[in-house]
């Protein structure tokens, strides 16, 4: 048994209560939801919080709600709930694609979207998904609620815009017409961190040309989305040549590091290969909604 350093533990009953506890216990406290990243880090003594504030009783943060032209997802929504949601599957295939390859059922039953985003592991899938879907984070703190674009949310590996006395409460996904999205990951084994992954979201104009495009890469050393590759798609009719060009640009834009999962050249190749695949899929799905 791996044993963490000693810590204190308290369960929050409401968001207000959680914020009050965060204020009281200061920066050495950590919020725990699913705990599948934080607990292993504590057991390896890579993380040593003095207080764990458990938010698993904050049922007010566990929801998936279509609200006009946006899908609102509570931060405590479990991966399994996202994976099983027909609403999510209908609107954002990329979320279903990604959730199906996040870890394993045991982790998905417990892990949350908020936990994934706040952990901000560079190989974390939902960060890319939220980037690609141009999601907005709803963050609450002592000063009230603020909205944070994904561009501002990520501050590098394991760092986000959520301050130590704040809590991520909700993620909002804008719903666009004639849209399709997709995610694909290469892993050495199911449940391993990604060697690399890519996600794309495409909105088509009525004439079938690309109206909006977003391409994101996971575990490839890229902040935000691949603007260069997105730009070549805009206003053009989807085609294999276009996907090839976008893939080429994605491979150039990324900045992977060599590790046990692969060397740099392989990872760049995956940026190219996976970008092409997800674009192909996202465009096909967008065209399908158009027909439907």
């Amino acid at each position: 048994m791996q044993i963490p350093a000693s810590f204190d533990y308290v369960r929050a009953s409401t968001v207000d209560d959680a914020l009050e506890l965060l204020a009281r216990h200061g920066p050495e406290s950590r919020v725990i939801a699913g705990g599948h990243s934080l607990l292993p880090m504590m057991k390896l003594r890579l993380a040593r919080p003095e207080w764990l504030i458990d938010i698993n009783d904050l049922f007010e943060l566990d929801f998936i709600l279509l609200d006009g032209d946006r899908l609102r997802v509570g931060a405590l929504t479990r991966h399994t709930a996202l994976l099983e949601s027909t609403e999510v599957a209908r609107l954002f295939s990329i979320i279903s694609d990604a959730e199906a390859v996040i870890a394993d059922p045991v982790v998905r039953n417990r892990g949350t979207i908020g936990g994934s985003l706040c952990q901000a592991d560079p190989a974390e899938d939902l960060s890319t998904v939220c980037d690609v879907l141009r999601a907005v984070a709803v963050v609450r703190g002592p000063g009230g609620e603020r909205l944070v674009d994904m561009n501002d949310f990520h501050r590098g590996p394991y760092e986000t815009a959520v301050a130590p006395d704040e809590l991520l409460c909700e993620v909002r996904f804008p719903v666009r017409p004639r849209s399709g999205s997709a995610y694909e990951k290469v892993e050495r084994r199911v449940g391993d961190w990604a060697v690399a992954a890519a996600g794309a979201a495409i909105s088509l104009a009525e004439d079938g040309s690309v109206e909006a495009a977003a391409i994101g890469l996971t575990a490839l050393g890229l902040d935000g989305t691949v603007a260069e590759a997105e730009a070549v798609l805009l206003g053009r009719q989807p085609s294999e040549e276009l996907f090839v060009e976008a893939g080429r640009l994605a491979a150039i834009a990324c900045d992977p590091v060599a590790d046990q999962r692969g060397q740099i050249d392989y990872k760049r190749h995956l940026a190219d290969e996976l970008t092409r695949r997800v674009l192909r899929q996202a465009c096909a799905r967008a065209a399908q909604t158009q027909e439907g």
Binding site: V186, R188, V195, R261, G262, Q263, Y266, K267, H269
Partner: peptide
């Protein structure tokens, strides 16, 4: 025979 090594 990991994906990276197969690709190499």
């Amino acid at each position: 025979c990991t994906p990276a090594r197969v690709w190499e």
